[in-house]
Amino acid sequence: MAERSGAESLKVASARALQEVLRPLGAAFASKVGAPVEFLFGPVGTVRERLEGGEVADVIILSDTLIAAFAKSGRIVEASRREIGRVGITLAVRDGTPAPDISTPDLFKQALLSAHAIACSDPAIGGSAGTHFAALLQRLGIEGAVSHKLLKRSSGVKTAEAVASGEADIGITLLPEMLPVKGVYPAAPLPQALQKFTTYVAAVSTQCTVPQTGAAFIRAAADPGLDSSWRAAGVEPP
């Protein structure tokens, strides 16, 4: 992340699944209050590691479990916590290609076994979809059967791009990371029994030197007037 560009600039460290709304919000916020906004986007695991490694942010927007852990360790201001929304995992299919039926766990399992190549986020990076999908393969008992056809990518966007290009038949990723990619569409969410929703929460860091500005940014991100933008980006507001 770049160094603070001015006394009132604001650093926001966030899960990358929220960037389609946060980037324009940051620009509008900076114009309104005169506080430049600098972003660090990445998989939740990567952002956590960078913050724990000493990188400083004024506002942190990560999964509810990580924000709770940061609250316990004194990294965030407890009273500043606000829920932003939740995101589910979706099956990506190339435009013009019929979507497989994955309405039940057994049908989802069969779709994975039938696919020639499956794009997914590399679980080693620490993203929500990649780590959950890796666990699902073990849970379904097919890790060995499909491991040779997994195309592990560095992000959900790259996962969707692999499907759009035809490298992979299907992809597994968070809905917000798929929607901006042309040539691919969200076929269906994972079956309810296998789905994992990630709830994102924002909080002001205890290291924040502009806490009022940080709190104002969080209020803007959680404003009900932004609900339609969040939904269009694949995020379900609270």
Score class of each variant (00 low, 15 high):
A99V: 14
A99C: 10
I102F: 10
S103E: 08
P105C: 04
P105N: 02
F108K: 10
H116R: 10
A117S: 15
A117F: 04
C120N: 11
S121L: 12
D122Q: 10
A124K: 14
G126E: 15
A129N: 13
A129E: 08
H132Y: 06
F133M: 08
F133V: 10
A134V: 06
A134S: 05
A134L: 11
Q138R: 12
Q138Y: 06
R139W: 04
L140Y: 04
I142R: 09
G144K: 15
G144I: 03
A145H: 07
H148R: 11
L150S: 13
K152Q: 08
K152R: 13
R153E: 11
S155M: 03
G156M: 01
V157F: 01
T159K: 00
A160N: 03
A162F: 05
A164I: 01
G166C: 12
E167A: 14
E167N: 14
A168S: 04
D169F: 02
D169M: 00
I170L: 05
I170Y: 12
I172S: 03
T173S: 10
T173C: 10
L174P: 15
L174G: 15
L175G: 04
M178V: 13
M178K: 09
P180A: 09
G183Y: 01
V184M: 03
V184C: 02
A187E: 05
L190R: 06
L190M: 12
L190K: 05
L190P: 06
L190D: 07
Q192V: 13
L194F: 13
Q195D: 15
F197L: 14
T198A: 11
A203I: 07
A203F: 00
S205F: 01
C208P: 11
T209A: 14
T213C: 12
